[in-house]
């Protein structure tokens, strides 16, 4: 459990960090995934750039109807921030479901997003929130949607030398819920469902469902969303919609859950998340 020798730099500005990343260095945020991989020598970066001392990356603020969260905000910061809890409760609820207290005190939003573990919790919420992810590279910032950002297991649209700078989520007044089935050993999501529902005049006007853990990459279950929108949101409506969540998905399979069981859990937990979200919708 000893990593290979590596260089370590801890810059204090974003520009310095980007410059080092451009030179082939690997970004280190909370280290909750990278460090164990290095200890097992599954990853052996030659140069680490520790983003932890860059103050301009660590913030949570509201700007023009959206929350802007810096890449190094910890899961605990997201979970406990009064701003996130009141203005985007789905993200706070999802952050609270990650790992354990120690992990949430160290791990960061930007690090988790960039790592793109197919069983990570955040992607479900970011999909459901239609979040935007701001990337910083040598050429400056670019902004992509969560749907574009997550490409495959551990694969994102991040280019060489690019890093996650910020995540933007809307100020959200929907009824929301994040429901996960933790893998019994790791605590990662075998299936995680983030649901948002808006109602008006007794009808569901908007439904958003983000799914993680089921397949190699998180996704929005648009067929299920559509099936729910315009209905009364009754138990039967929810069940019908939830049944579509895993349709056509190429579900993962391992010793903890077969593909069929994962799909089944996705349906069940979509139903549970939607019921909870519906209960909280205005």
């Amino acid at each position: 459990m000893f990593p290979q020798t590596f260089d370590y730099t801890a810059p204090t500005t974003l520009d310095e960090a980007v410059k080092l990343l451009g030179g082939g260095a690997k970004a280190l945020a909370g280290g909750m995934s990278l460090i164990p991989m290095m200890k097992l020598r599954l990853a052996s970066p030659e140069h680490l750039v520790d983003l932890g001392r860059i103050k301009e990356l660590n913030y949570i603020r509201e700007e023009s109807g959206a929350l802007h969260i810096g890449a190094t905000a910890t899961h605990y910061a997201v979970e406990s921030s009064p701003l996130v809890r009141t203005k985007c409760p789905l993200l706070a609820e999802t952050a609270a479901a990650i790992g354990d207290v120690q992990v949430r005190n160290m791990g960061t939003l930007g690090g988790a997003v960039a790592h793109a573990d197919p069983s990570a919790d955040y992607p479900a919420a970011l999909q459901a929130l239609e979040a935007k992810i701001v990337l910083r590279g040598a050429g400056g910032d670019r902004t992509v949607s969560a749907a574009e950002f997550f490409v495959d297991a551990f694969t994102t649209v991040l280019n060489e030398g690019e890093m996650v700078r910020e995540v933007i989520v809307p100020v959200d007044t929907s009824g929301v819920s994040y429901q996960k089935v933790p893998q019994p050993a790791s605590g990662f999501a075998m299936v995680g469902i983030a649901a948002r529902v808006k109602k008006a005049g007794g009808k569901v006007t908007e439904a958003r469902i983000g799914v993680t853990g089921l397949t190699n990459s998180s996704f929005r279950a648009t067929a299920a969303e559509k099936a729910l929108e315009g209905t009364n949101g009754s138990a039967a409506d929810i069940q019908k919609a939830a049944a579509l969540v895993a349709q056509g998905s190429d579900a993962n399979s391992d010793i903890h859950a077969s593909a069929d069981y994962r799909k089944h859990l996705a349906v069940v937990y979509t139903g549970r998340a939607l019921i909870a979200a519906m209960g909280r919708a205005q």
Binding site: L40, Q183, P184, A185, S186, I255, H256
Partner: peptide, 23 residues
């Protein structure tokens, strides 16, 4: 309820760390 040491057919221990071996 949870624990199992699982070897695959080639004798590789699949549950060889706490990420997969459920304590």
């Amino acid at each position: 309820l949870w624990e199992q040491a699982v070897y695959d057919d080639n004798g590789q221990l699949i549950t060889g760390e706490f990420m997969d071996y459920a304590m």
